[in-house]
Amino acid sequence: MRAAQFCHSCGKVQPPAPADYFTFFGLPRKLHLKEAALQREFYELSRKLHPDLSVRADAREQAWILEQSSRLNDAYRTLKDPIQRTQYLLGLEGVQLEEQSKSATEEARTAGTVKKQVVPPALLEEVFELNLQLEEARLAKKMGEPDPELVRELEQQKKKWEAQFEESLEELKGYWHEWDKLIDHDAAPEKRAAVRDKMVDLLNRRNYIRNLVRDVNEVLEG
């Protein structure tokens, strides 16, 4: 069942009722999703909710339409993207991924320190090596003696991390599978929490890798 955007008898747009994005589209809280079907549904709802179709409605109805159509767009934007969709679902499950990092950033800023990033344990060794190379390369550049061999090594590193970044999406899709099965079987909360935590770890690792690639790019290009 889709959230009630329209009146059942007259078809008019209704004032928005609080509903999460999955409910808005009438979807279960599962992570595998047919993108083509979602797009079809988005287009179909747009044909009913877009403000262009009701410039003659009265002010109150127009306000509802604006609210409903922005919600439709916000929901579609979030659900169509695999990472955003996962993050959003984790948010509904009580994990505050984004806010956590945001408040950490703010805290570090007010304290005047650099935000500490916890290195995912699995990456500890590799990151240690990369950071040494980055430091060396920055120093060499500062001295005006760029080291071609080091640059080559960093380019290797970049390729490796970019590959890991891509792979993390496949790994995430594996967890989606586990998650969706638990939902289908109405599994116990502890079981869901276990998969949820695996996804949180993976997303944190993914973010960390993205920042590493950015650092390498900065040294290579800057």
Binding site: P51, L66, E67, S69, S70, R71, N73, D74, Y76, R77, K102, E106, R109, T110
Partner: peptide, 21 residues
Amino acid sequence: EVAGGVTDKIILRNSTIPASA
């Protein structure tokens, strides 16, 4: 604008409009 004069983006470019945050 958040502490430290940094921009915290709440609606990204190329978002379909109407959009909200």
